[in-house]
Amino acid sequence: MALLEVEDLNVTIPTPRGTAHILSDVSFALERGECLGFAGESGCGKSITAMAVMGLLPTTAQATGRIRLDGRDLLAMDEAGLCAIRGRRVAMVFQEPMTALNPVKTIGFQVAEGPRLHLKLSKAEAGRRAVAMLRRVGLPPDRFSPDLYPYQLSGGQRQRVMIAAALACEPDILIADEPTTALDVTIQAQILDLISDVVQETGMALVMITHDLGVIAETAERMMVMYAGRIVESGPTAEVFRHMAHPYTRGLFAAIPGGPEEESRRLATIPGQVPEPIALPPGCAFAGRCARTEDDCRAAVPPAEPVGPGHRVRCLHPHVGAT
């Protein structure tokens, strides 16, 4: 049994203009200690997937399917059960370090908060743990007192605090939702190295959500490509990079100089409009933008078919052969 199994996850949000289909038939599994990467254009549902696993979907959202952690379905769990899991078994690092920390609480308090809650540590014990965690993420107490406030730190330092807080209870899964997008390029590498180090050290599983395909290539053993709320291609990272089958995945890589082997493989822009979540077409959502579109593409959503070892793709006319 995998550590985390997501099966047929569908998330809808009612809006004044109609029901928004945010996630459709999302299924994936995460093994202990595995690193899984999520890529896709802005708005494709990466963050919502993460929030669904955390049990923190918007209150108006409706979710169906199963999200099993050690076999227990989180969607069927009561709030108290979810609170015991959040931060303890599954922890999360967010995109915006500038706003993700409470401006009126010390960084020590914010790192110690989780251990005090979940591990029932005393104030002093939790404080010591916070100092240790801060030291681990590169904020030694001689220069970074736990009594500092977030405004006294830079963006990169704040993201280190976020990581310290996420690691403080030794979770089984760390979800990093674009942890470096808001940071300077030089800082980005440091933060990614830090995450890779602590993941290897503790043996926890990592879900890395990113716009940066270079990050996926470096950190993720398996990867998922999302489009309009669906996983359109998934497989071992090396295999997917070698045999990109979905036209969308190829489109993402196409315009990048030097191809997929190049050091910086950011998502390219593909011409055309992503369909709105309240007006998804009955067939393949990529049909309007895809050069390989044929009539059958518009009839029904393509099923996820295997195209290689562990490699699946939702496309009726996938590319075959090496990238």
């Binding site: 923190l56 108290a80 999360m92 993700a100 409470n102 009126v104 609480k105």
Partner: peptide, 26 residues
Amino acid sequence: REDYVRTARAKGLTFAAALWRHAVRN
């Protein structure tokens, strides 16, 4: 709606605790 309240929830604080400890003072 601030991010840090979401962070508090992600740490496992209940809605009431996140509201009381992180939202009210701000």
